[in-house]
């Protein structure tokens, strides 16, 4: 692929390893070469490095396949997922799961990414529903629209929620921004 097709989440094959572009910035003086300044993450080791390519360079994409699987459990070092049809299990290192761990709950369906038959990462659903375990009390009489307070959900993730949210309620959360979307009725 041409370097001009670079963007976030593109998977590249570099020195035989799959890397994902996690951050992307394009700079270019009026008549100079464009520079594609990227942060890339090794999908096997989780290592993140900076890398800059110039206009005109060609890159190889990594052939990464995805399979829908269920999250089972973690021992703190590895995260285990299961294929709901074949019952095959795979393990992924916690460095690779990284921040996505904030959204992993029992039986959550995720897309597990495979590179050369090895599980190298997960793609979360766009949003997840989680139970609020702690929430600051809402201040009575505060009717400011859009006012928020701190809350924690079952995975330990902390976020801002509207004042009316109470512990024990279910809320929908955007997995990309970690932002509250809406309350969900049980």
């Amino acid at each position: 692929m041409d370097v001009s097709d670079l963007k976030k989440n593109v998977k590249l094959l570099i020195d035989g390893n799959p890397w994902m572009v996690t951050d992307f910035q394009f700079v270019k003086p009026g008549k100079g070469q464009g520079l594609y300044k990227c942060k890339i993450k090794n999908m096997i080791s989780g290592a993140v490095v900076d890398r800059t390519w110039r206009s005109g360079e060609k890159l190889e994409t990594a052939n990464v396949e995805s399979r829908s699987m269920q999250y089972l459990f973690t021992d703190g070092v590895q995260y285990t997922f299961m294929d709901s049809e074949s019952f095959d299990q795979v393990e992924i290192a916690s460095e690779v799961i990284s921040d996505d761990a904030r959204f992993l709950m029992d039986q959550l369906e995720v897309d597990v990414l495979f590179f050369q038959d090895r599980a190298v990462g997960v793609t979360l659903p766009g949003h997840v529903v989680m139970e609020v375990t702690e929430a600051e009390p809402g201040v009575k009489g505060d009717t400011t629209s859009g006012a928020t307070k701190g809350a924690t959900v079952q995975s330990g993730l902390s976020l801002q929620v509207p004042l009316f949210i109470k512990p024990g309620e279910l809320i929908k959360i955007d997995t990309r921004t970690c932002a509250y979307i809406e309350r969900v009725n049980r």
Binding site: Q25, L35, K37, C38, K39, D50, R51, T52, W53, R54
Partner: peptide, 12 residues
């Protein structure tokens, strides 16, 4: 100068 880039080594 490429080594001083904020975004690491430059290729090409």
């Amino acid at each position: 100068l490429g080594e001083q880039l904020s975004a690491g080594a430059i290729s090409g």
